[in-house]
Each structure stands twice: as structure tokens, then as C-alpha cells.
Design a protein around this nucleic acid. Structure first.
Lengths: 221, 221
DNA sequence: GTCTATAAGGGGATAGAC
DNA sequence: GTCTATCCCCTTATAGAC
């Protein structure tokens, strides 16, 4: 307590985190995401991250005390971004078809804009989610339960086919994330070096149409 | 040449690979698959594989000269199993709906029975397929092209909706493989310790129904 | 905050006896 | 084919000067 007061009176500024610290931490987090995505946790070396961030490894360890701490920060950042998009409920007054279509298109957009983050997340889950499992249980499950309840109410109101809501979400998650996680395979199949905006457009049009029609929310176009 | 003759005359048996070699190689390959699946290439130690296989690391290196060679053998084994199931064409005389349904159910079955293999494969692709890319280009693409051509012919004959065949296969692959690759996440969502046969049954029923209906191959049940 | 130096340990791979 | 012993590099992390 006394310590806080002293610190404050001594420096005269509201921020206790220096500008350079903010910038360096942000830079490190950003390049870490790309490198963890490409090489996985164990395949990533602190040296490679430091080099991409333009500083020495020792200097980087001044900002993040260990590789594990850095990885956890990267994971947390991604998870928050993800969970934000998973909430189906916060679209007041829309009909089921529109809400689900927005959900699907939003997830594809996440794959397009945050493909590295998606890959880090995917690596973590495939390997049994050693760092993430408890967070998934505490944060993902409640959101999913709410969304599942909403779908159940639509089914009860005969607005759509009677399908298993959980598996509906699983197919939406997997089919949208594949455009990030498995982009290498998709590029090989489409014989392209990179997926462009049009590829993502075609993917989201197709997925929205097929899924909505598949659960009785839409006829043929 | 001379050497071959000598060897043959000396040992009097048709196999040049001893029984014990066969058994040990098979054991090593089998446990490697599980361990690579859980820890990824870099996270896997030769010690852990050797221990699971019941031999010393040095002994294991007698059968597989390096970690990389072992990994490539594991990958090759999985890829062959995969490609076998990807052929849509070899079902003479079936209608499109039945063929696609068999394809979907076959892929789910692969996820159920070879979940470790699927995870190794997924890890490899997410990380940019450094070892697998050329094989994908040479072996996967031709099979996919044939399947795509078949779907196009169905569309031309107005047997199904006019959808992009590539993206149709992408959604089938991703939504079926997710039950292997992302099993941890699915277990968390379903609040189960393991996915059982019934979960896979529900999943394949749901996916077959939703996808077929979604592309105009089936009405509501 | 950044640098040089270095500790400490892990893990892939080889040599050679048996 | 299997074992003991060992090499050697890579990588994380710390110590301490500036």
C-alpha cells in the first residue's frame, strides 16, 4: 500500500507500464502467434520469436519470464476472440436463419483474419488441450449451453428440423475453421498458393446455404 | 547380385526380414502413432516411444535409423489408409445419395477407429505439411479430381443442387475429422470423458442427413 | 531496458562390447 | 539384436555488467 503511493507520487503519470513495454509486448505476442501456429509449442524456439520481433532472446525474456507464460498469453488472447463470436444470442429480433447465417459468416471471417490464432488453438486442442482444457470447461460450455437452448426453442416452435444442436455447432465450427487450420491442404486441392477473398466468399456462401437448407431453414435459392 | 545369391543360399528362407524385426517394427509404428498424435513431432521424444514399445531407445534406433524416418513411415501409413477411403467412384451402380452417405459414414468410421492417425495427419497439415505436401499434391489431388468430376456429372444431370464440389468435400472432410482431431473439445462440450459408439452414431446420422438434404439429395426424413 | 556470458538439462544419434 | 557409455548440439533460463 505504502509502496503504491510512493510509486505514484514519484512518477506523476497514470500508466505504470511504459510505452516501450506496451509496444514490445504487443510485438512479441503478435509474432509469437504466427510462429506457434507454424511450428507448435515444442517446435517453436524463443530465439526465432525474438528474431522476428527484432530483439535478443534475453531481452524478450525480460518481458515474458518464460516460454510457457508467453504461450498462455497467446492462447488467452485467441480464446477471448473466439468466445466473443460464439454468442448466438446477442442478436435481438432476428429470425433463426439470419442469426445462424451471421454466425457462420462470422466464423469464416475469423478464419480469414486470424488464421494463425486458429492454428495455435487447433494444435492445442488436438494435443489434448493441456493448457486450455479448464478454460474451455469454464468459459466455452456456458456459452454453448445458451446457444443450444436457443436452437432447442426454435425446434420446439417448429421453425427448423429437429436436429441435435450440439452436433450442429460442431459441424459449423469444424467446417469454418478448416479454412484456417487446413489451409495448406485446401490450397493444394485448389492448386493455389494462397486463399484469396473470393475463395472465402465462395466458402461462406456455400456453407451458409448448405447448412441452413440442411436443417430446414431455407429452400433452394 | 552375388551377395543376394549368397544370402539366399545361406539362410534357406524366403523372408529376409526376421520375424522379430517385423514384430518390433510394427509395435514401434503403432505406439509412435499414438505419441506423435498427443505431442506432435517436436514434442515427442524417442525415449517415450521406446518405453511404450518396451525397449531401449538405442534398440529402437536399430530398427528406425532416425526420428524423421520413423515419422515419415507413420505418416505414409496414415495417408494410404486415408486415400483408400476418399475414392467415391468405386461404388458401381449406386445412386448419388447412397454413394455420398457411404462416403460420409466411412469417414466418420475412420475418425472413430483411427483417431490417433487422424491427429498426426492434422498436426502435419496445420504446420504447413512440411513432410506431406508433395505427397498430397501427387496422390490426393488426382483422387479428388475424379470425385469432383463425378459430382459435376450429377449436377449436370440435375440430380442435386448446383454447389461447388470442392467445398462440398472440404465440409465433409472437416466435419467428419473433427470427431477425431477435436475430440477433446467435443468431450468438454458433451461433458463426457470419452466419445462412445453412440456419439459417433448420432454424429454420422446427423451429418449424413444434413449434408444430403443441404445439397438437394434428400428431403426431411 | 539491453547486453555478454554461462549455467543446466534435454534429447537425438553413434561407437563398440557382447 | 541388445546393451553400456558417451558425444554433442540445441534450447531454456539466469547472473550480472552497463
Amino acid at each position: 500500500m505504502t509502496k503504491d503511493l510512493i510509486t505514484k507520487s514519484k512518477v506523476e503519470r497514470p500508466r505504470r507500464r511504459s510505452r516501450i513495454r506496451e509496444a514490445h509486448e504487443a510485438k512479441i505476442l503478435s509474432v509469437s502467434e504466427d510462429i506457434f501456429a507454424q511450428f507448435g509449442y515444442n517446435g517453436t524456439t524463443l530465439d526465432s520469436i525474438a528474431e522476428s520481433a527484432g530483439m535478443s532472446k534475453q531481452n524478450m525474456l525480460y518481458y515474458f519470464p518464460s516460454k510457457e507464460v508467453l504461450y498462455l498469453r497467446v492462447l488467452a488472447k485467441i480464446l477471448d476472440l473466439w468466445l466473443e463470436k460464439l454468442v448466438l444470442l446477442d442478436q435481438e429480433g432476428e429470425d433463426p436463419a439470419t442469426m445462424l447465417e451471421n454466425y457462420i459468416r462470422g466464423k469464416i471471417e475469423l478464419s480469414r483474419l486470424h488464421s494463425s490464432g486458429s492454428k495455435v488453438f487447433a494444435n492445442e486442442i488436438i494435443n489434448g488441450a493441456p493448457y486450455l482444457k479448464s478454460h474451455l470447461q469454464s468459459k466455452l460450455t456456458p456459452i454453448l449451453e445458451a446457444d443450444v437452448g436457443l436452437v432447442r426453442s426454435w425446434i420446439a416452435d417448429s421453425k427448423m428440423d429437429s436436429v441435435d444442436p450440439y452436433h450442429l455447432f460442431f459441424v459449423i465450427w469444424s467446417s469454418t475453421q478448416t479454412y484456417a487450420d487446413f489451409s495448406t491442404q485446401i490450397q493444394v486441392c485448389l492448386k493455389k498458393d494462397q486463399l484469396d477473398n473470393e475463395d472465402f466468399q465462395v466458402a461462406s456462401d456455400f456453407l451458409a446455404q448448405m447448412i441452413l437448407k440442411g436443417i430446414g431453414l431455407r429452400g433452394s435459392l
